[in-house]
Protein backbone atom coordinates (compact mmCIF):
# COMPACT_ATOMS: atom_id res chain seq x y z
CA UNK A 1 0.00 0.00 0.00
CA UNK A 2 1.14 3.49 -0.78
CA UNK A 3 2.47 5.35 2.26
CA UNK A 4 1.82 2.47 4.66
CA UNK A 5 4.08 3.96 7.29
CA UNK A 6 1.86 6.96 7.81
CA UNK A 7 -1.54 5.70 6.84
CA UNK A 8 -1.91 2.89 9.36
CA UNK A 9 -0.87 4.85 12.49
CA UNK A 10 -2.99 7.70 11.14
CA UNK A 11 -6.01 5.48 10.89
CA UNK A 12 -5.50 4.15 14.39
CA UNK A 13 -5.16 7.67 15.72
CA UNK A 14 -8.33 8.72 13.90
CA UNK A 15 -10.37 5.84 15.31
CA UNK A 16 -9.03 6.58 18.77
CA UNK A 17 -9.99 10.23 18.49
CA UNK A 18 -13.39 9.57 16.93
CA UNK A 19 -14.28 7.05 19.62
CA UNK A 20 -13.30 9.56 22.28
CA UNK A 21 -16.82 10.06 23.74
CA UNK A 22 -17.36 6.34 24.14
CA UNK A 23 -14.46 5.58 26.41
CA UNK A 24 -14.33 8.98 28.05
CA UNK A 25 -17.87 8.78 29.30
CA UNK A 26 -17.63 5.05 29.98
CA UNK A 27 -15.44 5.78 32.95
CA UNK A 28 -17.23 7.27 35.90
CA UNK A 29 -20.59 6.34 37.29
CA UNK A 30 -24.11 6.62 35.95
CA UNK A 31 -25.72 9.75 37.17
CA UNK A 32 -28.82 8.94 39.21
CA UNK A 33 -32.06 9.28 37.30
CA UNK A 34 -33.46 12.72 38.09
CA UNK A 35 -36.29 13.21 40.55
CA UNK A 36 -39.29 14.46 38.61
CA UNK A 37 -41.99 16.40 40.32
CA UNK A 38 -45.27 14.71 39.49
CA UNK A 39 -48.44 16.72 39.03
CA UNK A 40 -50.68 16.92 42.06
CA UNK A 41 -53.98 17.25 40.23
CA UNK A 42 -53.76 14.12 38.09
CA UNK A 43 -52.71 10.53 38.54
CA UNK A 44 -52.21 9.45 34.96
CA UNK A 45 -50.87 11.14 31.88
CA UNK A 46 -52.61 11.16 28.52
CA UNK A 47 -51.28 7.72 27.65
CA UNK A 48 -49.37 5.14 29.68
CA UNK A 49 -46.06 6.32 31.15
CA UNK A 50 -43.71 4.14 29.06
CA UNK A 51 -45.43 5.34 25.90
CA UNK A 52 -45.27 8.95 26.98
CA UNK A 53 -41.67 8.67 28.04
CA UNK A 54 -40.67 7.31 24.66
CA UNK A 55 -43.07 9.17 22.41
CA UNK A 56 -44.28 12.42 23.98
CA UNK A 57 -42.54 14.49 21.31
CA UNK A 58 -44.11 12.48 18.51
CA UNK A 59 -47.51 12.67 20.15
CA UNK A 60 -47.15 16.44 20.39
CA UNK A 61 -46.07 16.62 16.79
CA UNK A 62 -49.08 14.59 15.69
CA UNK A 63 -51.34 16.79 17.82
CA UNK A 64 -49.97 19.96 16.30
CA UNK A 65 -50.44 18.75 12.76
CA UNK A 66 -53.99 17.58 13.53
CA UNK A 67 -54.98 20.86 15.20
CA UNK A 68 -53.34 23.25 12.79
CA UNK A 69 -54.03 21.46 9.52
CA UNK A 70 -57.08 19.26 10.05
CA UNK A 71 -59.26 21.30 12.41
CA UNK A 72 -59.16 18.53 15.02
CA UNK A 73 -59.18 19.37 18.69
CA UNK A 74 -60.06 16.45 20.99
CA UNK A 75 -57.88 13.45 21.70
CA UNK A 76 -59.53 10.32 23.03
CA UNK A 77 -56.85 8.24 24.71
CA UNK A 78 -56.71 4.46 24.74
CA UNK A 79 -58.24 4.60 28.20
CA UNK A 80 -61.28 6.43 26.80
CA UNK A 81 -60.47 9.70 28.59
CA UNK A 82 -60.60 12.80 26.40
CA UNK A 83 -58.11 15.66 26.28
CA UNK A 84 -57.89 18.93 24.45
CA UNK A 85 -54.96 18.77 22.07
CA UNK A 86 -53.34 21.83 23.53
CA UNK A 87 -49.87 21.97 25.01
CA UNK A 88 -50.67 24.95 27.17
CA UNK A 89 -53.95 23.79 28.64
CA UNK A 90 -53.47 20.05 28.76
CA UNK A 91 -49.76 19.36 29.22
CA UNK A 92 -48.69 22.47 31.09
CA UNK A 93 -51.98 22.49 32.98
CA UNK A 94 -50.66 19.53 34.98
CA UNK A 95 -46.92 19.90 34.63
CA UNK A 96 -47.00 23.45 35.90
CA UNK A 97 -43.26 23.68 36.31
CA UNK A 98 -41.30 22.75 33.24
CA UNK A 99 -38.16 23.20 35.27
CA UNK A 100 -39.05 20.47 37.71
CA UNK A 101 -40.36 18.07 35.10
CA UNK A 102 -39.37 18.50 31.48
CA UNK A 103 -36.01 20.13 31.96
CA UNK A 104 -34.73 17.66 34.55
CA UNK A 105 -35.17 14.73 32.25
CA UNK A 106 -33.97 16.64 29.21
CA UNK A 107 -30.85 17.73 31.05
CA UNK A 108 -30.23 14.17 32.22
CA UNK A 109 -30.44 12.97 28.63
CA UNK A 110 -28.48 15.94 27.39
CA UNK A 111 -31.10 17.11 24.93
CA UNK A 112 -32.15 20.73 24.46
CA UNK A 113 -35.41 20.85 22.54
CA UNK A 114 -36.31 24.40 21.57
CA UNK A 115 -39.89 24.22 22.97
CA UNK A 116 -39.51 27.08 25.42
CA UNK A 117 -38.31 29.49 22.78
CA UNK A 118 -42.00 29.90 21.92
CA UNK A 119 -44.17 28.03 24.39
CA UNK A 120 -44.47 29.31 27.90
CA UNK A 121 -45.51 27.78 31.11
CA UNK A 122 -47.58 29.93 33.42
CA UNK A 123 -44.84 30.26 36.02
CA UNK A 124 -42.09 31.53 33.74
CA UNK A 125 -44.55 33.82 32.03
CA UNK A 126 -45.54 35.51 35.25
CA UNK A 127 -41.91 35.72 36.26
CA UNK A 128 -41.03 37.25 32.90
CA UNK A 129 -43.63 39.97 32.99
CA UNK A 130 -42.90 40.84 36.63
CA UNK A 131 -39.29 41.65 35.85
Amino acid sequence: MYGKRWVIPGMILFVALAAFPFYWYAVGKDKPFPQLEMPKNAKACVEKTPFMRANHMRLLDAWRIAVVRDNLFVYTAASGKTFEMNLHKTCLGCHTSTEKFCDRCHTYNDVTPPCWECHLQTETASKGSAS
Partner: peptide, 18 residues
Protein backbone atom coordinates in the same frame (compact mmCIF):
# COMPACT_ATOMS: atom_id res chain seq x y z
CA UNK B 1 -35.85 12.07 10.85
CA UNK B 2 -38.90 12.99 12.87
CA UNK B 3 -41.31 12.44 10.07
CA UNK B 4 -42.02 8.76 10.59
CA UNK B 5 -45.70 8.26 11.12
CA UNK B 6 -46.55 7.47 14.69
CA UNK B 7 -49.40 5.13 15.44
CA UNK B 8 -51.18 6.87 18.29
CA UNK B 9 -53.01 4.62 20.70
CA UNK B 10 -55.96 7.02 20.83
CA UNK B 11 -57.97 8.85 18.20
CA UNK B 12 -58.58 12.48 17.34
CA UNK B 13 -61.82 14.29 16.69
CA UNK B 14 -63.30 17.75 16.33
CA UNK B 15 -64.03 19.95 19.29
CA UNK B 16 -67.69 19.83 20.38
CA UNK B 17 -68.01 23.62 20.60
CA UNK B 18 -66.08 24.47 17.46
Amino acid sequence: HGYELLELPGRMSKGPEE
